[in-house]
Design a binder for these strands. Structure first.
Lengths: 147, 147
DNA sequence: CAATAGAGTTCAATAATGGAACCCATTGGT
DNA sequence: ACCAATGGGTTCCATTATTGAACTCTATTG
């Protein structure tokens, strides 16, 4: 009667769900990407129970998205940073944010991320690496279709 | 002591977390996108408890990502379909899948989605809508940085 | 020498999940 | 006519997970 384990499913979406398929993980990653990095900063910013935060951080470290680094020896102090795996997940978060801006906030999207390269607020587009087209649901073949 | 409610947070990632921030919702959406649409098909394919599936489906319908359509009158039968909001979330799922293919499956990525337009297996790229560049963590300004 | 800060633990009380069994209206088979 | 099967859920109970508050421990500061 344990919580279902997706970590062995032969599907990347299931495996990703296994890593960040809970309410807090995406927010923890967002905060760390934004530069919050200590346990207490994360805890107060997210207002998550310290208990749960501990578990999420440990899990994300364990799966390789974060690393825990000691930044002070004498009073032992740590910070959490994104690994390369974690950094590459940030664009995925941005596609979520862009989708949310459109479908949840509609006319009043909240704070924005800046693209340093072009100095614009980021709107993320999902394109096919092969042909460069914007990916739309209608142009995909996702497998069996029974209806 | 209720589970935290992200639905009013001023952040799209939090709001999205509120909609699909659990283990099952992304998989339900994936299956429906792939053409599975009845309660029983979803239940047996995902091996989720019917209980939980009912809640997920109701929630996704309620927030507008799915709609429940009657396809038979006499024996009342229903199917679940993506709304436009739901369809536009599919590319977000694909960015997750592409990331998962790279970082979780590494050398042996699982089944693939076809891009009808170019006939390739989809590899999703996240680009800035403004300048067209591929978005990389290093070229983003995500807000306060304290470390 | 007491107060604070960082980084967690521990504990008890609520929620959420998982499994299995049950319901109800039709159909299909014998 | 009777019985099982199908689709689409409910209900109930046993486990897990999450929450909030309080508590540790070490080290630094006033």
């Amino acid at each position: 009667m344990k919580r279902q384990d997706f970590s062995q499913w032969p599907c990347s979406i299931a495996r990703v769900s296994d890593l960040i398929g809970d309410g807090w993980s995406p927010l923890v990653l967002r905060d760390i990407a934004a530069g919050l990095c200590t346990f207490n900063d994360l805890q107060t910013n997210l207002n998550v129970s310290r208990n749960t935060l501990t578990q999420r951080l440990n899990h994300l470290v364990q799966v390789g998205m974060l690393r825990r680094e000691r930044y002070s020896e004498k009073p032992e102090r740590f910070k959490y940073l994104l690994t390369e795996m974690g950094e590459e997940f940030v664009p995925v978060l941005l596609t979520m944010a862009t989708w949310g801006d459109k479908w949840i906030f509609k006319d009043a999207p909240p704070y924005k991320v800046k693209h340093i390269t072009c100095n614009a607020s980021v709107t993320a587009e999902v394109r096919c690496a092969e042909c460069g087209e914007i990916i739309k649901f209608g142009s995909l073949n996702l497998g069996r279709s029974s209806c």
